[in-house]
């Protein structure tokens, strides 16, 4: 009959959320200016997307979705899922790229 409140819960402060939100907005603007203004002649375009997008996703997952405050189990579950997607990508690419 647990109250949710009786189990250990972590109340995240508004400040944290605001900072995360600001970071997300900043990263979005950075990413779009890199690719829209063709910084570096467009060479950095996909590299930026490869780094910045996962970073943004991680911010959402860790702070907005509270993964930072959850049990290890949740992190393992997420890692396994991501690994499987990456393996699916890799093994399929092994066919498509070398066909």
């Amino acid at each position: 009959m647990a109250h949710e409140a009786t189990e250990e819960i972590h109340v995240v402060s508004y400040t944290t959320y605001t900072l995360v939100w600001a970071a997300l907005v900043g990263l979005t603007l950075l990413l779009s200016s890199i690719s829209l203004l063709h910084m570096g002649g467009g060479r950095w375009n996909s590299l930026a997307a490869f780094i910045i997008s996962p970073l943004k996703a991680a911010l959402v997952v860790f702070f907005f979705m509270h993964l930072k405050y959850e049990k290890t189990l949740f992190r393992i579950m997420l890692m396994v899922t991501l690994c499987i997607i990456i393996i699916f990508l890799g093994l399929t690419f092994l066919d498509v790229a070398l066909r």
Binding site: S35, L36, S53, V60, V61, F64
Partner: peptide
């Protein structure tokens, strides 16, 4: 909220894949 954040995350990836 968790569900909403997931929707958000997917969009984070769709942005560079299509719009950029």
């Amino acid at each position: 909220a968790l569900y909403w954040h997931l929707v958000d995350i997917i969009w984070i990836f769709l942005l560079p894949l299509f719009y950029l």
